[in-house]
Nucleic acid binder design. Sequence first.
DNA 1: TTAAAAGTTTACCGGGCGGTAAAGAAACTG
DNA 2: CAGTTTCTTTACCGCCCGGTAAACTTTTAA
Lengths: 237, 237
Amino acid sequence: MSESQGGVDEAGVDETAADETAADEEGSETGADGDSSNGTVSSKDTKEVIMEATFRALSKHGYKDLRMRDIGEEMDLTRQVIHYHFDGKYDLMSSFLEHIIDQYEGSVVVEGDADPRTELRARVDQCLFGPEFEEFSHWDRMKVYHELYTHAQNDGEHREVFNEHYERLRGSIVEVVEEGIEEGVFRDVDAERMGQLVTDVIHAARGRRISLGHEDAPEEARKAIDEFIFESLERTE
Amino acid sequence: MSESQGGVDEAGVDETAADETAADEEGSETGADGDSSNGTVSSKDTKEVIMEATFRALSKHGYKDLRMRDIGEEMDLTRQVIHYHFDGKYDLMSSFLEHIIDQYEGSVVVEGDADPRTELRARVDQCLFGPEFEEFSHWDRMKVYHELYTHAQNDGEHREVFNEHYERLRGSIVEVVEEGIEEGVFRDVDAERMGQLVTDVIHAARGRRISLGHEDAPEEARKAIDEFIFESLERTE
DNA sequence: TTAAAAGTTTACCGGGCGGTAAAGAAACTG
DNA sequence: CAGTTTCTTTACCGCCCGGTAAACTTTTAA
Protein backbone atom coordinates (compact mmCIF):
# COMPACT_ATOMS: atom_id res chain seq x y z
CA MET A 1 0.00 0.00 0.00
CA SER A 2 2.90 2.32 0.65
CA GLU A 3 4.50 2.04 -2.80
CA SER A 4 1.35 2.65 -4.73
CA GLN A 5 2.71 4.66 -7.64
CA GLY A 6 2.66 2.88 -10.94
CA GLY A 7 3.81 -0.71 -11.35
CA VAL A 8 7.42 0.14 -10.64
CA ASP A 9 8.64 -3.13 -9.21
CA GLU A 10 8.45 -4.89 -12.56
CA ALA A 11 12.05 -4.38 -13.67
CA GLY A 12 13.43 -2.05 -11.03
CA VAL A 13 13.75 0.79 -13.50
CA ASP A 14 11.50 3.80 -13.10
CA GLU A 15 9.93 5.10 -16.26
CA THR A 16 11.16 8.58 -15.60
CA ALA A 17 14.77 7.41 -15.54
CA ALA A 18 14.89 7.48 -19.31
CA ASP A 19 14.80 11.22 -19.74
CA GLU A 20 17.38 11.88 -17.07
CA THR A 21 20.01 9.56 -18.44
CA ALA A 22 19.30 10.62 -21.98
CA ALA A 23 21.01 13.95 -21.32
CA ASP A 24 24.40 12.28 -21.54
CA GLU A 25 24.98 13.28 -25.12
CA GLU A 26 28.23 14.95 -26.16
CA GLY A 27 29.84 14.59 -22.76
CA SER A 28 33.52 13.63 -22.22
CA GLU A 29 34.77 17.20 -22.21
CA THR A 30 34.08 17.55 -18.52
CA GLY A 31 36.37 19.89 -16.66
CA ALA A 32 38.47 20.71 -19.70
CA ASP A 33 37.02 24.16 -20.08
CA GLY A 34 36.35 25.91 -16.81
CA ASP A 35 39.68 25.72 -14.95
CA SER A 36 41.54 28.93 -14.26
CA SER A 37 45.31 29.26 -13.66
CA ASN A 38 44.89 26.80 -10.85
CA GLY A 39 43.75 23.32 -11.82
CA THR A 40 40.61 23.52 -9.69
CA VAL A 41 37.08 24.14 -10.79
CA SER A 42 35.85 26.29 -7.94
CA SER A 43 32.34 27.05 -6.78
CA LYS A 44 32.65 30.49 -8.33
CA ASP A 45 33.22 28.97 -11.73
CA THR A 46 30.30 26.61 -11.35
CA LYS A 47 27.95 29.46 -10.51
CA GLU A 48 29.19 31.26 -13.59
CA VAL A 49 28.59 28.16 -15.70
CA ILE A 50 25.06 27.99 -14.34
CA MET A 51 24.48 31.64 -15.14
CA GLU A 52 25.55 31.17 -18.72
CA ALA A 53 23.51 28.02 -19.08
CA THR A 54 20.52 29.89 -17.68
CA PHE A 55 21.05 32.60 -20.25
CA ARG A 56 21.17 30.13 -23.09
CA ALA A 57 18.10 28.25 -21.88
CA LEU A 58 16.23 31.51 -21.40
CA SER A 59 17.11 32.55 -24.94
CA LYS A 60 15.78 29.32 -26.35
CA HIS A 61 12.63 28.75 -24.36
CA GLY A 62 11.61 32.10 -22.97
CA TYR A 63 10.89 32.94 -19.37
CA LYS A 64 7.46 31.39 -19.26
CA ASP A 65 8.54 27.98 -20.52
CA LEU A 66 11.87 27.82 -18.78
CA ARG A 67 12.36 24.54 -16.96
CA MET A 68 15.16 23.63 -14.61
CA ARG A 69 15.82 20.75 -16.96
CA ASP A 70 16.46 23.14 -19.84
CA ILE A 71 19.22 24.84 -17.91
CA GLY A 72 20.77 21.49 -17.06
CA GLU A 73 20.87 20.57 -20.71
CA GLU A 74 22.82 23.73 -21.49
CA MET A 75 25.82 22.74 -19.39
CA ASP A 76 28.11 19.80 -18.74
CA LEU A 77 26.86 19.41 -15.21
CA THR A 78 23.57 17.86 -14.26
CA ARG A 79 20.67 20.07 -13.42
CA GLN A 80 20.72 19.03 -9.74
CA VAL A 81 23.86 21.04 -9.02
CA ILE A 82 21.72 24.13 -9.37
CA HIS A 83 19.87 23.14 -6.23
CA TYR A 84 23.17 22.92 -4.41
CA HIS A 85 24.28 26.42 -5.36
CA PHE A 86 20.92 28.15 -5.40
CA ASP A 87 17.90 27.88 -3.20
CA GLY A 88 15.34 26.83 -5.77
CA LYS A 89 14.14 28.31 -9.02
CA TYR A 90 13.19 31.73 -7.75
CA ASP A 91 16.54 32.27 -6.07
CA LEU A 92 18.24 31.28 -9.30
CA MET A 93 16.22 33.77 -11.30
CA SER A 94 16.94 36.54 -8.84
CA SER A 95 20.66 35.86 -9.04
CA PHE A 96 20.44 35.74 -12.79
CA LEU A 97 18.66 39.06 -12.87
CA GLU A 98 21.52 40.69 -11.00
CA HIS A 99 23.95 38.89 -13.25
CA ILE A 100 22.50 40.19 -16.47
CA ILE A 101 22.07 43.72 -15.16
CA ASP A 102 25.68 43.80 -14.02
CA GLN A 103 26.69 42.64 -17.45
CA TYR A 104 24.58 45.32 -19.08
CA GLU A 105 26.01 48.11 -16.99
CA GLY A 106 29.54 46.79 -17.29
CA SER A 107 29.29 46.94 -21.05
CA VAL A 108 28.54 50.65 -21.07
CA VAL A 109 31.73 52.50 -21.90
CA VAL A 110 31.99 56.06 -20.66
CA GLU A 111 34.29 58.66 -22.09
CA GLY A 112 33.62 61.93 -20.40
CA ASP A 113 35.99 64.03 -22.44
CA ALA A 114 33.87 64.35 -25.57
CA ASP A 115 31.56 67.30 -26.04
CA PRO A 116 27.95 66.77 -24.89
CA ARG A 117 26.58 66.56 -28.41
CA THR A 118 28.92 63.73 -29.37
CA GLU A 119 28.61 61.94 -26.07
CA LEU A 120 24.83 62.02 -26.05
CA ARG A 121 24.76 60.43 -29.48
CA ALA A 122 27.35 57.89 -28.44
CA ARG A 123 25.28 56.86 -25.47
CA VAL A 124 22.15 56.47 -27.51
CA ASP A 125 24.06 54.36 -30.03
CA GLN A 126 25.43 52.20 -27.29
CA CYS A 127 21.98 51.49 -25.92
CA LEU A 128 20.55 50.85 -29.36
CA PHE A 129 23.31 48.86 -30.99
CA GLY A 130 25.51 47.76 -28.11
CA PRO A 131 29.10 46.63 -28.13
CA GLU A 132 29.79 44.50 -31.15
CA PHE A 133 32.19 42.08 -29.46
CA GLU A 134 31.08 39.54 -26.81
CA GLU A 135 30.21 35.95 -27.52
CA PHE A 136 26.50 36.61 -27.82
CA SER A 137 24.96 39.27 -29.97
CA HIS A 138 23.66 42.41 -28.39
CA TRP A 139 20.13 41.38 -29.20
CA ASP A 140 20.41 37.94 -27.69
CA ARG A 141 21.22 39.70 -24.45
CA MET A 142 18.54 42.28 -24.96
CA LYS A 143 15.89 39.71 -25.66
CA VAL A 144 16.47 38.04 -22.32
CA TYR A 145 16.84 41.34 -20.53
CA HIS A 146 13.63 42.69 -21.97
CA GLU A 147 11.62 39.63 -21.12
CA LEU A 148 12.73 39.81 -17.51
CA TYR A 149 11.92 43.49 -17.54
CA THR A 150 8.34 42.85 -18.52
CA HIS A 151 7.91 40.08 -16.00
CA ALA A 152 8.98 42.45 -13.26
CA GLN A 153 5.43 43.75 -13.24
CA ASN A 154 4.39 40.62 -11.36
CA ASP A 155 7.30 40.57 -8.94
CA GLY A 156 7.91 43.40 -6.52
CA GLU A 157 11.46 42.34 -5.73
CA HIS A 158 12.56 42.17 -9.34
CA ARG A 159 10.76 45.40 -10.07
CA GLU A 160 12.85 47.09 -7.42
CA VAL A 161 16.06 45.84 -8.97
CA PHE A 162 15.01 47.09 -12.37
CA ASN A 163 14.00 50.46 -10.98
CA GLU A 164 17.43 51.04 -9.52
CA HIS A 165 19.08 49.95 -12.73
CA TYR A 166 16.76 52.10 -14.80
CA GLU A 167 17.47 55.11 -12.65
CA ARG A 168 21.21 54.76 -13.26
CA LEU A 169 20.74 54.51 -17.00
CA ARG A 170 18.40 57.44 -17.23
CA GLY A 171 20.55 59.44 -14.84
CA SER A 172 23.60 59.03 -17.01
CA ILE A 173 21.73 60.48 -19.96
CA VAL A 174 20.25 63.29 -17.93
CA GLU A 175 23.77 64.17 -16.79
CA VAL A 176 24.97 64.65 -20.32
CA VAL A 177 21.99 66.83 -21.14
CA GLU A 178 22.62 68.99 -18.09
CA GLU A 179 26.24 69.30 -19.03
CA GLY A 180 25.26 70.43 -22.50
CA ILE A 181 22.90 73.03 -21.15
CA GLU A 182 25.55 74.44 -18.86
CA GLU A 183 28.02 74.63 -21.71
CA GLY A 184 25.42 76.38 -23.80
CA VAL A 185 25.36 73.87 -26.66
CA PHE A 186 21.83 72.79 -25.71
CA ARG A 187 18.92 75.10 -25.12
CA ASP A 188 17.60 75.43 -21.60
CA VAL A 189 15.16 72.53 -21.29
CA ASP A 190 14.04 70.38 -18.39
CA ALA A 191 16.96 67.93 -18.44
CA GLU A 192 15.09 65.29 -16.47
CA ARG A 193 12.21 65.28 -18.90
CA MET A 194 14.47 65.31 -21.93
CA GLY A 195 16.57 62.45 -20.57
CA GLN A 196 13.46 60.49 -19.81
CA LEU A 197 12.15 61.01 -23.32
CA VAL A 198 15.36 59.76 -24.91
CA THR A 199 15.48 56.78 -22.58
CA ASP A 200 11.88 55.99 -23.40
CA VAL A 201 12.44 56.06 -27.13
CA ILE A 202 15.38 53.73 -26.76
CA HIS A 203 13.32 51.30 -24.73
CA ALA A 204 10.42 51.40 -27.14
CA ALA A 205 12.58 50.70 -30.15
CA ARG A 206 14.09 47.81 -28.27
CA GLY A 207 10.71 46.41 -27.40
CA ARG A 208 9.51 46.82 -30.95
CA ARG A 209 12.48 45.07 -32.41
CA ILE A 210 12.18 42.22 -29.93
CA SER A 211 8.42 41.74 -29.63
CA LEU A 212 7.40 42.61 -33.16
CA GLY A 213 10.59 41.63 -34.96
CA HIS A 214 11.14 45.05 -36.52
CA GLU A 215 14.77 44.71 -37.49
CA ASP A 216 15.12 48.34 -38.43
CA ALA A 217 13.56 49.73 -35.26
CA PRO A 218 16.87 50.75 -33.64
CA GLU A 219 18.11 52.52 -36.75
CA GLU A 220 14.83 54.28 -37.30
CA ALA A 221 14.68 55.32 -33.67
CA ARG A 222 18.20 56.62 -33.97
CA LYS A 223 17.24 58.77 -36.92
CA ALA A 224 14.04 59.99 -35.29
CA ILE A 225 15.90 61.04 -32.16
CA ASP A 226 18.43 62.84 -34.30
CA GLU A 227 16.00 64.60 -36.58
CA PHE A 228 13.24 65.52 -34.19
CA ILE A 229 14.50 65.50 -30.63
CA PHE A 230 18.11 66.59 -30.89
CA GLU A 231 17.09 69.02 -33.56
CA SER A 232 14.88 70.66 -30.97
CA LEU A 233 17.47 70.33 -28.23
CA GLU A 234 20.39 71.86 -30.06
CA ARG A 235 18.52 74.89 -31.31
CA THR A 236 20.10 77.52 -29.07
CA GLU A 237 18.50 80.83 -29.68
CA MET B 1 -2.83 -4.94 -11.96
CA SER B 2 -4.96 -2.79 -14.17
CA GLU B 3 -6.09 -0.29 -11.56
CA SER B 4 -2.72 0.35 -9.98
CA GLN B 5 -3.07 4.05 -9.33
CA GLY B 6 -3.21 5.05 -5.74
CA GLY B 7 -5.42 3.19 -3.27
CA VAL B 8 -8.54 4.74 -4.68
CA ASP B 9 -11.02 2.05 -3.76
CA GLU B 10 -10.71 2.82 -0.08
CA ALA B 11 -13.64 5.19 0.19
CA GLY B 12 -14.48 5.85 -3.43
CA VAL B 13 -13.29 9.44 -3.20
CA ASP B 14 -10.14 10.48 -5.04
CA GLU B 15 -7.76 12.72 -3.18
CA THR B 16 -7.84 15.26 -5.94
CA ALA B 17 -11.57 15.61 -5.65
CA ALA B 18 -11.18 18.07 -2.80
CA ASP B 19 -9.83 20.97 -4.80
CA GLU B 20 -12.33 20.59 -7.59
CA THR B 21 -15.43 20.62 -5.43
CA ALA B 22 -14.05 23.40 -3.28
CA ALA B 23 -14.73 25.89 -6.05
CA ASP B 24 -18.43 25.82 -5.24
CA GLU B 25 -18.32 28.97 -3.15
CA GLU B 26 -20.75 31.80 -3.82
CA GLY B 27 -22.73 29.95 -6.44
CA SER B 28 -26.55 30.00 -6.67
CA GLU B 29 -26.72 33.01 -8.96
CA THR B 30 -26.38 30.83 -12.03
CA GLY B 31 -28.07 32.10 -15.14
CA ALA B 32 -29.41 35.22 -13.48
CA ASP B 33 -26.94 37.51 -15.15
CA GLY B 34 -26.06 36.52 -18.66
CA ASP B 35 -29.42 36.19 -20.39
CA SER B 36 -30.32 38.59 -23.13
CA SER B 37 -33.84 39.56 -24.21
CA ASN B 38 -34.46 35.90 -24.77
CA GLY B 39 -34.34 33.68 -21.73
CA THR B 40 -31.51 31.56 -23.10
CA VAL B 41 -27.86 31.64 -22.24
CA SER B 42 -26.36 30.96 -25.63
CA SER B 43 -22.94 29.72 -26.61
CA LYS B 44 -22.02 33.24 -27.62
CA ASP B 45 -22.61 34.47 -24.11
CA THR B 46 -20.61 31.65 -22.60
CA LYS B 47 -17.63 32.46 -24.77
CA GLU B 48 -17.90 36.04 -23.65
CA VAL B 49 -18.04 34.93 -20.02
CA ILE B 50 -14.90 32.89 -20.56
CA MET B 51 -13.14 35.83 -22.17
CA GLU B 52 -13.91 38.04 -19.22
CA ALA B 53 -12.90 35.38 -16.75
CA THR B 54 -9.66 34.94 -18.67
CA PHE B 55 -9.06 38.65 -18.43
CA ARG B 56 -9.59 38.67 -14.70
CA ALA B 57 -7.40 35.63 -14.14
CA LEU B 58 -4.70 37.10 -16.33
CA SER B 59 -4.81 40.33 -14.33
CA LYS B 60 -4.37 38.47 -11.09
CA HIS B 61 -1.80 35.85 -11.94
CA GLY B 62 0.04 37.09 -15.01
CA TYR B 63 0.56 35.22 -18.23
CA LYS B 64 3.32 32.99 -16.96
CA ASP B 65 1.41 31.65 -13.98
CA LEU B 66 -1.99 31.48 -15.61
CA ARG B 67 -3.67 28.14 -15.05
CA MET B 68 -6.85 26.88 -16.60
CA ARG B 69 -8.09 26.45 -13.05
CA ASP B 70 -7.63 30.15 -12.37
CA ILE B 71 -9.94 31.03 -15.22
CA GLY B 72 -12.52 28.56 -13.97
CA GLU B 73 -12.47 30.20 -10.57
CA GLU B 74 -13.29 33.56 -12.12
CA MET B 75 -16.65 32.46 -13.45
CA ASP B 76 -19.79 30.65 -12.38
CA LEU B 77 -19.12 27.77 -14.74
CA THR B 78 -16.59 25.06 -14.16
CA ARG B 79 -13.25 25.23 -15.88
CA GLN B 80 -14.05 22.22 -18.10
CA VAL B 81 -16.49 24.19 -20.23
CA ILE B 82 -13.48 25.98 -21.65
CA HIS B 83 -12.39 22.75 -23.29
CA TYR B 84 -15.79 22.46 -24.89
CA HIS B 85 -15.68 25.91 -26.47
CA PHE B 86 -11.95 26.15 -27.16
CA ASP B 87 -9.44 23.67 -28.38
CA GLY B 88 -7.05 23.76 -25.47
CA LYS B 89 -5.11 26.45 -23.73
CA TYR B 90 -3.30 27.83 -26.74
CA ASP B 91 -6.49 28.21 -28.73
CA LEU B 92 -8.04 30.02 -25.80
CA MET B 93 -5.14 32.43 -25.58
CA SER B 94 -5.25 33.12 -29.29
CA SER B 95 -8.94 33.90 -29.12
CA PHE B 96 -8.36 36.08 -26.10
CA LEU B 97 -5.66 37.97 -27.92
CA GLU B 98 -8.06 38.86 -30.70
CA HIS B 99 -10.67 39.71 -28.10
CA ILE B 100 -8.52 42.20 -26.25
CA ILE B 101 -7.17 43.78 -29.44
CA ASP B 102 -10.70 44.24 -30.77
CA GLN B 103 -11.62 45.85 -27.51
CA TYR B 104 -8.63 48.15 -27.68
CA GLU B 105 -9.36 49.28 -31.20
CA GLY B 106 -13.06 49.58 -30.53
CA SER B 107 -12.35 51.99 -27.71
CA VAL B 108 -10.50 54.43 -29.93
CA VAL B 109 -12.84 57.23 -30.84
CA VAL B 110 -12.15 59.07 -34.07
CA GLU B 111 -13.35 62.52 -34.84
CA GLY B 112 -11.89 63.63 -38.13
CA ASP B 113 -13.27 67.14 -38.12
CA ALA B 114 -10.83 68.68 -35.66
CA ASP B 115 -7.68 70.37 -36.89
CA PRO B 116 -4.57 68.15 -37.04
CA ARG B 117 -2.95 69.80 -34.04
CA THR B 118 -5.92 69.09 -31.81
CA GLU B 119 -6.54 65.66 -33.19
CA LEU B 120 -2.96 64.54 -32.81
CA ARG B 121 -2.99 65.53 -29.17
CA ALA B 122 -6.34 63.86 -28.68
CA ARG B 123 -5.02 60.63 -30.08
CA VAL B 124 -1.97 60.67 -27.89
CA ASP B 125 -4.13 61.32 -24.86
CA GLN B 126 -6.40 58.48 -25.78
CA CYS B 127 -3.50 56.05 -25.99
CA LEU B 128 -1.97 57.29 -22.76
CA PHE B 129 -5.01 57.74 -20.58
CA GLY B 130 -7.74 55.82 -22.34
CA PRO B 131 -11.48 56.11 -22.00
CA GLU B 132 -12.42 56.67 -18.40
CA PHE B 133 -15.62 54.66 -18.44
CA GLU B 134 -15.69 50.83 -18.74
CA GLU B 135 -15.87 48.38 -15.88
CA PHE B 136 -12.13 47.91 -15.68
CA SER B 137 -9.62 50.70 -15.54
CA HIS B 138 -7.61 51.58 -18.59
CA TRP B 139 -4.49 50.27 -16.91
CA ASP B 140 -5.98 46.96 -15.94
CA ARG B 141 -6.57 46.43 -19.64
CA MET B 142 -3.19 47.77 -20.59
CA LYS B 143 -1.38 45.55 -18.14
CA VAL B 144 -2.83 42.45 -19.73
CA TYR B 145 -2.38 43.81 -23.22
CA HIS B 146 1.23 44.69 -22.59
CA GLU B 147 2.10 41.36 -21.12
CA LEU B 148 0.71 39.57 -24.14
CA TYR B 149 2.60 41.99 -26.33
CA THR B 150 5.90 41.02 -24.77
CA HIS B 151 5.16 37.34 -24.93
CA ALA B 152 4.58 37.64 -28.66
CA GLN B 153 8.34 37.47 -29.06
CA ASN B 154 8.15 33.74 -28.46
CA ASP B 155 5.13 33.10 -30.63
CA GLY B 156 5.14 33.81 -34.35
CA GLU B 157 1.38 33.65 -34.68
CA HIS B 158 0.69 36.11 -31.90
CA ARG B 159 3.46 38.31 -33.16
CA GLU B 160 1.72 38.52 -36.52
CA VAL B 161 -1.54 39.58 -34.88
CA PHE B 162 0.21 42.28 -32.92
CA ASN B 163 2.05 43.50 -35.98
CA GLU B 164 -1.17 44.05 -37.85
CA HIS B 165 -2.73 45.80 -34.89
CA TYR B 166 0.36 47.92 -34.38
CA GLU B 167 0.38 48.94 -38.00
CA ARG B 168 -3.19 50.20 -37.73
CA LEU B 169 -2.41 52.23 -34.64
CA ARG B 170 0.73 53.77 -36.05
CA GLY B 171 -0.95 54.36 -39.39
CA SER B 172 -3.72 56.35 -37.78
CA ILE B 173 -1.19 58.65 -36.19
CA VAL B 174 0.84 58.96 -39.37
CA GLU B 175 -2.33 59.96 -41.18
CA VAL B 176 -2.92 62.88 -38.89
CA VAL B 177 0.66 64.02 -39.30
CA GLU B 178 0.38 63.87 -43.08
CA GLU B 179 -2.84 65.78 -42.94
CA GLY B 180 -1.18 68.46 -40.88
CA ILE B 181 1.70 68.74 -43.28
CA GLU B 182 -0.62 69.12 -46.23
CA GLU B 183 -2.57 71.80 -44.44
CA GLY B 184 0.65 73.57 -43.63
CA VAL B 185 0.25 73.57 -39.85
CA PHE B 186 3.16 71.10 -39.50
CA ARG B 187 6.55 71.50 -41.08
CA ASP B 188 7.50 69.11 -43.85
CA VAL B 189 8.88 66.09 -41.98
CA ASP B 190 8.94 62.38 -42.75
CA ALA B 191 5.44 61.57 -41.51
CA GLU B 192 6.18 57.87 -41.16
CA ARG B 193 9.16 58.50 -38.94
CA MET B 194 7.37 61.11 -36.90
CA GLY B 195 4.36 58.86 -36.39
CA GLN B 196 6.61 56.02 -35.37
CA LEU B 197 8.40 58.21 -32.84
CA VAL B 198 5.17 59.29 -31.22
CA THR B 199 3.89 55.73 -31.15
CA ASP B 200 7.13 54.57 -29.60
CA VAL B 201 7.05 57.13 -26.84
CA ILE B 202 3.50 56.13 -26.00
CA HIS B 203 4.48 52.49 -25.80
CA ALA B 204 7.54 53.18 -23.69
CA ALA B 205 5.59 55.22 -21.17
CA ARG B 206 3.07 52.45 -20.98
CA GLY B 207 5.77 49.84 -20.39
CA ARG B 208 7.41 51.99 -17.79
CA ARG B 209 4.24 52.56 -15.90
CA ILE B 210 3.38 48.88 -15.99
CA SER B 211 6.74 47.19 -15.48
CA LEU B 212 8.36 49.71 -13.19
CA GLY B 213 5.26 51.12 -11.56
CA HIS B 214 5.96 54.72 -12.56
CA GLU B 215 2.54 56.21 -12.00
CA ASP B 216 3.42 59.50 -13.60
CA ALA B 217 4.95 58.03 -16.74
CA PRO B 218 1.96 58.77 -19.00
CA GLU B 219 1.68 62.36 -17.84
CA GLU B 220 5.39 62.96 -18.16
CA ALA B 221 5.42 61.38 -21.61
CA ARG B 222 2.53 63.59 -22.59
CA LYS B 223 4.45 66.68 -21.54
CA ALA B 224 7.65 65.56 -23.20
CA ILE B 225 5.87 64.91 -26.48
CA ASP B 226 4.27 68.31 -26.25
CA GLU B 227 7.37 70.27 -25.34
CA PHE B 228 9.99 68.57 -27.44
CA ILE B 229 8.40 66.71 -30.32
CA PHE B 230 5.35 68.77 -31.20
CA GLU B 231 7.38 71.86 -30.56
CA SER B 232 9.66 70.72 -33.35
CA LEU B 233 6.81 69.57 -35.55
CA GLU B 234 4.73 72.71 -35.40
CA ARG B 235 7.57 75.07 -36.14
CA THR B 236 6.68 76.04 -39.69
CA GLU B 237 9.30 78.27 -41.14
C1' DT C 1 -43.96 14.29 -26.39
C1' DT C 2 -40.05 12.61 -27.72
C1' DA C 3 -35.47 12.45 -29.60
C1' DA C 4 -31.37 14.32 -30.69
C1' DA C 5 -28.32 18.10 -30.36
C1' DA C 6 -25.94 21.40 -27.51
C1' DG C 7 -24.09 22.63 -23.29
C1' DT C 8 -22.38 21.64 -18.61
C1' DT C 9 -20.70 18.95 -14.73
C1' DT C 10 -18.54 15.18 -12.13
C1' DA C 11 -14.89 12.21 -11.78
C1' DC C 12 -10.56 10.96 -13.03
C1' DC C 13 -5.91 10.40 -15.20
C1' DG C 14 -1.12 10.56 -17.47
C1' DG C 15 2.74 13.12 -17.64
C1' DG C 16 5.93 16.31 -16.43
C1' DC C 17 7.83 19.50 -13.27
C1' DG C 18 10.61 21.17 -9.13
C1' DG C 19 12.75 19.31 -5.53
C1' DT C 20 15.27 15.89 -2.23
C1' DA C 21 18.05 11.97 -0.14
C1' DA C 22 21.86 9.61 -0.24
C1' DA C 23 25.73 7.71 -2.56
C1' DG C 24 29.96 8.89 -4.73
C1' DA C 25 34.06 11.84 -6.23
C1' DA C 26 37.28 15.37 -5.60
C1' DA C 27 39.65 18.77 -2.97
C1' DC C 28 41.35 20.59 1.03
C1' DT C 29 43.28 19.63 5.88
C1' DG C 30 46.03 17.71 9.84
C1' DC D 1 47.18 9.13 4.07
C1' DA D 2 43.01 9.34 6.86
C1' DG D 3 39.39 12.33 7.86
C1' DT D 4 36.59 16.00 6.64
C1' DT D 5 34.45 19.21 3.75
C1' DT D 6 32.96 20.60 -0.57
C1' DC D 7 30.95 19.46 -4.69
C1' DT D 8 28.48 16.40 -8.07
C1' DT D 9 25.67 12.56 -9.57
C1' DT D 10 22.24 8.86 -9.47
C1' DA D 11 17.86 7.59 -8.32
C1' DC D 12 13.54 8.78 -7.12
C1' DC D 13 9.13 11.10 -5.59
C1' DG D 14 4.91 13.92 -4.65
C1' DC D 15 2.26 17.25 -6.55
C1' DC D 16 -0.10 19.79 -9.76
C1' DC D 17 -1.52 20.90 -14.30
C1' DG D 18 -3.99 20.32 -18.79
C1' DG D 19 -6.92 17.35 -20.74
C1' DT D 20 -10.65 13.60 -21.43
C1' DA D 21 -14.69 10.30 -20.85
C1' DA D 22 -18.97 9.89 -19.71
C1' DA D 23 -23.02 11.13 -17.10
C1' DC D 24 -26.29 14.61 -16.71
C1' DT D 25 -29.17 18.71 -17.96
C1' DT D 26 -31.03 21.98 -20.89
C1' DT D 27 -32.42 23.61 -25.38
C1' DT D 28 -33.91 22.87 -30.07
C1' DA D 29 -36.58 20.63 -33.58
C1' DA D 30 -40.16 17.23 -35.33
